[in-house]
Design a protein around this nucleic acid. Structure first.
Lengths: 168, 168
DNA sequence: TGCAATATAGTCACATATGACTATACATAC
DNA sequence: GTATGTATAGTCATATGTGACTATATTGCA
């Protein structure tokens, strides 16, 4: 559902072809927004079938022809509705990637601490990357801001975990 | 990868059949850990094929026969390795469910605010539910703790968003 | 007693998502 | 001048994940 919302939202501001939409998502939204190229193309196809989008084939030079999609009136209605529904909803994010913490007591600190330090470095790098993104023009400030808030909260938590392991 | 880690971890403390594992995950890990029944069965099959698990068929009363899985030596090695790898890694969580925030300026506050309030209520309910879970015996304290930390951070963020919209 | 709901245990068809791939153009270095 | 990388544009086979379903037993309760 939010995948459609995202694509429709981008098309609200201007017509685009799949490749461009993918660029937008990769460039201006952080690593927290995960919507892969191949999915984007499927979504575009589906939404065109449903009458939310129209497209024109475009041949620029000798590059592969591309489909430039534009949002229709029906698409704009759908966008509104998706937006309202999405705002009213709250689904928990998947933290499956963090189950390892639950098994920390199965490892001696000498083994786990260096790993946790590596983990911390990756988190810090990700945070820095996202902070940088936020300063670029064209970035979606709200979305990036949320990611930064989240990552800082994650860093706080991780430092707590490391402290606990050190003290054990 | 973390899905295997989770299942192996549960089997480290005792033998179990698929249904039991599913119960564990649904009862003792919060809503943040999403690993559905059908996936669990597939994982068990795969890991048995790979020699990480063995199983015995068990017939209790007239209920469907069930496979009781136990972790092997190879499985324990794999668990160690997965645990170390997982600890050393940090992959961003998917915040696609939050793209709607990026389009808030496309709605008048009269429309968006009630929706944001609904969202807040769901978040608060989820937080309460997770807090309750944490007090039950058998819950994985670290994992639940992380979820609580995350959800509180989310609430802070959401309140900031609501404030911003009110002031606009 | 009867029947609706829930617990037990798992399968399967289908939906969704991803990496690897195709193909062309252009720039850069060697 | 030719190999190497990367930007453009998108497809497709395969991997992954999910809801809906089967089938039986037990419990609650009207």
């Amino acid at each position: 559902m939010e995948d459609k919302l995202l694509v429709l939202g981008l098309l609200m501001s201007s017509e685009m072809h799949g490749y461009q939409i993918n660029e937008m998502i990769e460039m201006h939204l952080g690593t927290g927004i995960q919507l892969k190229k191949s999915l984007i193309y499927k979504l575009l196809g589906k939404m065109a079938d449903d009458g939310w989008l129209t497209f024109t084939e475009e041949k620029a030079g000798k590059r592969p022809t591309r489909r430039v999609y534009a949002i229709t009136a029906r698409g704009k209605e759908a966008f509104q509705q998706l937006l309202l529904d999405s705002l009213a909803d709250y689904r928990p994010v998947d933290l499956l990637g963090h189950v390892a913490e639950g098994y920390l007591d199965m490892l001696p600190p000498e083994l786990s601490l260096p790993r946790l330090e590596q983990r911390r470095q990756k988190l810090v790098a990700l945070l820095q990357e996202t902070l940088d993104l936020g300063t670029h023009p064209g970035s979606q400030q709200f979305v990036i801001g949320h990611q930064i808030h989240h990552l800082k909260s994650e860093l706080t938590w991780l430092d707590g975990v490391i402290k606990t392991v050190k003290e054990s």
